[in-house]
Simulated assay, not measured.
Amino acid sequence: MSKVKYYYDSDTQSYRKIERRKGRRIGIVMLSILGSFLAGFLLLVIYLNIPQIVTPKEKALKRELQNMELQYGLLNKKMNQIQNVLANIEDRDNNIYRVYFEANPIPEEQRRAGFGGINRYKDLEGFDNSKLIIETSKRMDILTKQLVVQSKSLDEIAELAKEKESLLASVPAIQPVKNEDLSRIASGYGWRTDPFTKVRKFHHGMDFSAPRGTPVYATGNGRVERADNRATGYGNHIRVDHGYGYTSLYAHLYKYNVRIGQRVQRGDIIGYVGSTGRSQGPHLHYEIFKDDQRINPINFYYGNLSPEEFDKVLEKAQQENQSLD
C-alpha cells in the first residue's frame, strides 16, 4: 500500500492530501522506457566498436591453432628437403646404379604415380584450415609412396651388387703363372706353327714356359670340374667352372693340387707346371671358354698386371712363332 502524502496549504492553514496526476505518471513511465532504450543503444554501439572480448579458453584455442599452422609450415619445409634428397637418389639410381648393374631404369610415371579412386581426404574437409591440412596430407602420402618405390629399387640394386661382386670374383682375371716364375711367354692365341707337324695351326690358348714344378694358380673363383689326363693332347689338366658361362683350362701339368668338385678361390695353387701330354717342354697351356667357345686369354689379365706389364705380355703373345703343344 502506497503512502499518502500531504502538503500544507497556507490559505486554509491546513494540510491537504497530494493528488497524483495520471498524465504525469504516464510521462514518467515513457521517460523511463526511453532512457532504457537509449542506454541499451549506447551499450550496443560501444560493444560493436571495441575489440572483441576473448575468453581464456578462446585464447588458448587460438594459440593452439597458430601453433598448428606453424607446425604444418615447418613440416612442408622438411618435406621439400626430403623431396630434394629423394630426387637426387632417384637420379643416381637410374643413371648410375642401374646403368652399372645393367638394369632397366624405373619409369618416371611409376615413381610419380598418384592415388586414384575415392576421395581419401573427405574427412579433412569443412575446417578453417582444410586446404592446408589436405595438401600436406597428399604430399606426405605421395612422398611415402615414392620412398617405398625407391626402397624396393635399392633392395634390387643390393641383390645386383651381390651378384656383380660374385661375377667379378669368378671371372678369370689374373695370369695363371706369376711373372717372376716365368721363363717366357712361349706362344699366344692365334695361328702358330705346330711343334710336331710344322704346319700352321690355330692355337686356342697361351703357353707359359716355366720350370717343372712351378705353381699354377686359379685365375678366378669356381669349382673344379675336371682333374685328369683323359683329354687328348692335354695330359694332366684341370678345368675350373667359374659360373656365368666361364671355364678355365690348365694343361700339361706335372701334378694336381685339387680334386674334382673342390671349390677354389682366385690365387689358390691348383697344380704345378709339367710337360705331360702333347708337349715339347715344361710349360702351362692355358685356355678360357665363354659359353663353351674358346676366347683369347690375353683380355683377362687385368687383375694382377700393371699397364706396362700387360703391354709386354700383349707384344709377346702377338708374335707368330712356334707353340709348345
Rank of each mutant, 00 (worst) to 15 (best):
K3M: 09
D9L: 02
D9I: 00
D9N: 11
R16F: 07
K17C: 09
I18H: 14
R20T: 02
R21A: 06
I28G: 13
S32C: 13
L34W: 11
S36E: 02
S36K: 00
A39R: 04
G40E: 02
L42K: 05
K59W: 13
R63P: 10
E64T: 14
E64D: 14
L65R: 14
N67E: 13
N67G: 13
L70T: 14
G73Y: 08
L74A: 10
L74W: 14
L75V: 07
L75H: 14
N80K: 15
I82G: 07
N84Y: 12
L86V: 12
A87T: 08
A87K: 02
N94Y: 08
N95L: 08
I96V: 03
E102I: 02
I106L: 09
G117S: 10
I118P: 15
N119E: 09
K122F: 15
D123L: 04
L124Q: 03
D128N: 08
E135L: 03
T136Q: 14
R139A: 11
I142R: 08
T144P: 01
Q150I: 04
S151V: 07
S151Q: 14
K152G: 13
S153C: 09
A158Y: 12
A161E: 12
L168R: 10
I174A: 14
I174Y: 05
I174L: 02
I174V: 13
N179A: 05
D181H: 09
S183K: 11
I185N: 08
Y189M: 03
W191L: 11
W191F: 15
R192Q: 11
R200K: 05
K201E: 10
H204S: 15
F208G: 07
R212I: 07
T214C: 00
G222M: 02
R223N: 02
V224R: 03
V224M: 06
V224K: 03
R226A: 02
A227M: 01
R230C: 06
T232S: 11
G233F: 11
N236C: 09
H237Q: 09
H237M: 00
I238P: 04
H252V: 05
H252R: 00
G277K: 05
G281M: 03
G281N: 05
R294D: 06
N296D: 12
N299R: 03
E308I: 05
F310S: 09
F310W: 07
L324V: 01
D325V: 08
